[in-house]
Amino acid sequence: MARSRAVMSIYDQPMWKSIDAGKWQLQQCDGCGAYRYPPGPVCDKCLSMDSTWRDLSGRGKVLSWVVFHRKYLSDYEPPYNAVAVQLAEGPIVVTNLIGPEPEGGWIGRDVEICYEPDAEGHTIPRVKLAN
């Protein structure tokens, strides 16, 4: 069984570098201001090829969540959760909720991005409940 592995196109590399530096950045379109996720060469809203890497605010809201009970990856031991979070900047990302679990429903809860080391010395962005 293999480890998890990030898709690492030439557009993804700057994002993971920013994550390793402890500040997740995404491209903001120079043409219309929309944020892109996953990173890519062109804006799907206005087709501009120009963008600037911006720090995320770190704020988001839980859209949905699951719990894995089957093992697929050597570095993820079930049970563990995955959450879909809509960032304040607009894009939806999938990550993990760490720390205390919400009382009652998870969906709609405010979360903030935090950074954790992985087994290979890199950094992975996750979320915890916002204060």
Binding site: V7, W65, V66, F68, A84, T95, G105
Partner: peptide
């Protein structure tokens, strides 16, 4: 379908997990 593999760094993999995430929100 890039969505099948893109979220693997967070342990999020498999077609079933994509539908599980969708169904949880549908339940809500």
């Amino acid at each position: 379908f890039l969505s099948y593999v893109y979220h693997s760094p967070w342990g999020y993999t498999s077609q079933g997990a994509l539908y599980a995430m969708m169904f949880r929100r549908f339940q809500e």
